[in-house]
Amino acid sequence: FFAEVGFPCPPLRNPSDHFLRCVNSDFDKVKATLKGSMKARIERSDDPLDKITTSEAIRKLVSAYNRSQYYYAAREKVNDIARIKGTVMDSRGSQASFLMQACTLTRRSFINMSRDFGYYWLRLLIYLLVTVCIGTIYLDVGTKYTSILARAACAAFVFGFVTFMSIGGFPSFVEEMKVFQRERLNGHYGVAAFVIANTISALPFLVLICFMSGTVCYFMVRLHPGFTHYIFFVLNLYASVTVVESLMMAIASV
């Protein structure tokens, strides 16, 4: 067809490269850039593409195709296919129950978090190192009236740093979101099952992080004695981290 229109493939040229050269306007930019240095070569060339632009070649090809037998054969083939009646696929999504979806996603997400060192394990090590440093800075400040500012500064630093470091799981969660978007479009599960599964699978890691880092800081600084005070401190730390993790998930899903 290209030869009939006036664009035969030159000898020693790859046919696919020749066809691409006929319809790709990027080659015009290359030809314009090398116009001065290749002027004599272009004038001696027998390739018609060297003498016209790609847009002109496309118009010529389209005009010739609309009058060719290939066009009518293709139209006839399309009409034959359109007349074939087939069954419409009923896309009902996943046949699994919501509970099964949530359980499967929870197990898969937990395994993924366990194997990915940068998801929670690296953050746990960083939290422990930082809380040890904080504990040495505010070591045994006591519970006297004069140490109120020191205890407040210690708590603010711990809560601020631990919540700020939740951004460390952002890259791993973004990769997980790519899988979620593809599987959701295929109808395997919905948003609710994914959110519940991700929250439950992250729960043990967040509890471990908060209890270990909170325990180190609490007893090194020697905050108010008593189990209830200790649990209150750790639970507040866990609540703060959970909120920031949720915000991180919301931002990553945009």
Rank of each mutant, 00 (worst) to 15 (best):
T53P: 01
C210Y: 01
R83N: 14
R83L: 06
C22W: 03
F194N: 14
F98H: 08
V158I: 06
R67H: 07
L124G: 11
A155T: 14
A197Q: 01
I126S: 05
G135I: 05
G142H: 03
R44D: 12
K39D: 14
C210P: 03
L235N: 06
F194G: 00
I167A: 13
C9S: 00
I167L: 08
C133G: 12
M100L: 11
S213F: 01
N66P: 00
N24D: 15
F219T: 08
S45P: 06
A73T: 04
A193R: 00
L61T: 12
I200R: 01
Q69E: 15
Q101Y: 03
E245A: 15
D90L: 14
D46N: 11
I137N: 01
Q181A: 12
F157Y: 09
R123D: 02
G6L: 05
I137M: 10
E175I: 03
E245I: 02
D80H: 08
T146A: 14
V23C: 05
L203Y: 15
A239R: 07
A64F: 09
S25V: 13
D46Y: 05
G36K: 08
N112D: 15
V234I: 15
V254T: 11
L49M: 05
F27H: 10
A250T: 07
R75V: 12
I58H: 08
I84W: 09
K178Y: 02
P171A: 04
L185N: 09
A57C: 11
R41I: 13
A202D: 03
P10Q: 07
Q101A: 04
S166K: 13
M100R: 12
Y145Q: 15
I84G: 02
V241Y: 01
V207M: 12
R184I: 00
D26H: 14
T228N: 10
R92S: 09
V195K: 07
I148F: 09
G226D: 02
P11T: 10
L122R: 07
C22M: 14
A150N: 03
L237V: 07
C210N: 15
D50G: 10
E56N: 06
R59K: 11
F194D: 07
S55I: 14
I231F: 13
S213M: 04
V158Q: 10
F211Q: 01
I126R: 00
S94I: 03
K178E: 10
